[in-house]
Design a protein around this nucleic acid. Structure first.
Length: 482
RNA sequence: GGCCCGUUGGUCAAGCGGUUAAGACACCGGCCUCUCACGCCGGUAACACCAGUUCGAUUCUGGUACGGGUCACCA
């Protein structure tokens, strides 16, 4: 037995990466890497009906973007391959037969119809062990007759099975609660319940990290390890991720709560590092520190299972927004512009200084998807609401603003250059010479050119963004309307 | 419904028998300021309930309530 820790992430290729699933991958990865262990990626694609084209690529891409690298897995390979379950069918068959031989499993010839009839009106109801004690002769006969069959795990009828979970402590389940679950389906594919155990063992997985929906079914898996005579792994079940409903209640995080897949979030302009940082803190908390910004390396250095929480966490978009805005502010200009400029360049007219605009936006957006809605006043000359000229703090009125605009127009037309500093000085001098408050002058100009009450940036900053021609044109337009 | 798990402010959470019960987001004030944002300063707000153990329970035990999970030829 190796004494290094090995964990794995074993997603189903569903076509998208649910954020809860990503968090599981993260924790599994961190648990291993925090102790210098190994991390394996395995694709669990045994459900032929749910096969989705290209879904594996989504998984690979997500792990790449988030910086969760694996030591073994599809593409990179490894000593325990193949890492895609549909390519391991003979292995499952072999191990299932071992269990039949040892009396821990049996053939079941029941029809789907019979199984259906066992359920109650709520759709709940389990197998009744109908084929559990079929004689060897009957089995041979049915097999020879080509009757479709499944292979079931034979559960003990009495007693309890328990294990100690790293997060939840001891979990004990009466064996009478355990159904003789299917290991190999009629189509020859194994079920999760069976093949993940075989794979985890064969791949040397020492710590099984997964969502707590498996908490109560884990005794069945323990029994499988026992039946094979294998040492059971350490289990680390994670609390679920929840979403808040409109009525204020919470439920398992799903689409109705908003974007819940990694790719949705990225498409909305959230940064992978921000997403990772945020979800790392949903259900885990570092010890002995209040730090909340973590790079992947820092997460590796700080992660420990003691920090894992037992109770479910609500995914809060507000906090994600905050994290993302912080990450945006920390971006260097080059990478920030790489994301922001294409969006602005596509939307804005040529005369707009998109680089300056991007700069103004940097401290004001929480995600890149927000840019479009923030620059409507740049793209179009909005309808003017004259009330905007009234500002109590600067004591402005439409009339006072009209005077300011009329005075400043020629000044601006003669401006030596058209940058923020020059314009600001120009207007400040005008304010001083006419004994007006600078704020009052700025207010008039800003409203005249933006035609909007709240804007990203002040009057002179916006004039720089708009350029001389458009700025002058907007002031003339505003004047004509007053 | 049976079984299992959970419950500290609106949210994420620290706490691991004795604390003025941290911190963060959000919210509300104030400062800064050419509006807003950023930044800075400050504020409101929590141990679900009932018993028991104990000199003392947010911390331990039991029950109740509420929430969640699970009982598939899905994972």
């Amino acid at each position: 037995m190796s004494n290094t820790i090995t964990t794995r992430f074993a997603p189903s290729p569903t076509g998208f990466m649910h954020i809860g699933n990503l968090r599981t991958a993260l924790y599994s990865y961190l648990l291993s890497k925090s102790q210098g262990g190994k991390f394996i990626l395995r694709i669990e694609d045994t459900d032929q009906e749910r096969f989705v084209e290209g879904a594996v690529d989504v998984i690979l891409k997500t792990l790449e973007m988030t910086g969760i690298d694996y030591d073994e897995g599809p593409v990179v390979g490894g000593e325990h391959g193949p890492y895609i379950q549909s390519e391991r069918l003979p292995i499952y068959k072999e191990y299932a037969e071992k269990l039949i031989a040892s009396g821990h499993a049996y053939y079941c010839f029941c029809t789907p119809e019979r199984l259906e009839s066992l359920k109650d009106d709520k759709g709940i109801g389990g197998y009744d062990g109908h084929c559990r004690d079929l004689s060897k002769e009957e089995v041979e006969k049915n097999l020879a007759a080509g009757i479709p069959y499944v292979i079931r795990q034979k559960m003990p009828l009495e007693g309890t099975t328990s294990y100690v979970d790293e997060v939840y402590g001891e979990v004990a389940i009466d064996n009478s609660e355990l159904r003789d679950q299917i290991m190999i389906k009629a189509d020859g594919y194994p079920t999760y319940n069976f093949c993940h155990v075989v794979d985890d063992y064969l791949m040397g997985v020492t710590h099984v990290v997964r969502g707590n929906e498996y908490l109560t079914s884990t005794p069945k898996y323990c029994l499988l390890y026992d039946a094979f005579g294998w040492e059971r792994p350490t289990y680390v079940h994670l609390p679920l991720l929840m979403g808040k409903d409109e009525d204020g209640k919470v439920s398992k995080l799903s689409k109705r709560h908003g974007a819940v897949s990694f790719q949705d979030l990225v498409a909305d302009g959230y940064l992978p590092e921000a997403i990772v940082n945020y979800i790392a803190l949903l259900g885990w908390c570092p010890k002995d520190t209040n730090q909340e910004f973590f790079t992947m390396d820092e997460l590796k250095a700080n992660f420990s299972m003691e920090g894992l929480s037992k109770s479910p966490a609500v995914f809060d978009y507000e906090k994600l927004n905050w994290f993302n805005s912080e990450y945006i502010k920390k971006m260097d200009d080059e990478s920030y512009n790489e994301k922001a400029l294409p969006i602005l360049d596509e939307l804005c007219p040529d005369y707009i200084d998109t680089k300056k605009l991007a700069e103004l936006l940097k401290s004001r957006i929480y995600a890149f998807c927000e840019i479009k809605e923030r620059i409507g006043f740049v793209l179009d000359r909005l309808d003017m609401d004259k009330e905007l000229y009234t500002n109590k703090k600067n004591k402005t009125t439409p009339e006072s603003c009209k005077e300011v605009l009329a005075d400043c127009l020629p000044l601006l037309k003669n401006a030596k250059s058209w940058d923020n500093d020059t314009l600001f000085e120009l207007l400040k001098e005008y304010a001083a010479s006419t004994e007006k408050k600078a704020g009052a002058v700025m207010w008039a100009i800003r409203i005249a050119i933006a035609r909007l009450g709240v804007t990203p940036g002040g009057a002179t900053e916006l004039m720089e963004v708009f350029g001389k021609e458009e700025s002058i044109a907007r002031i003339e337009l505003a004047l004509s309307e007053l």
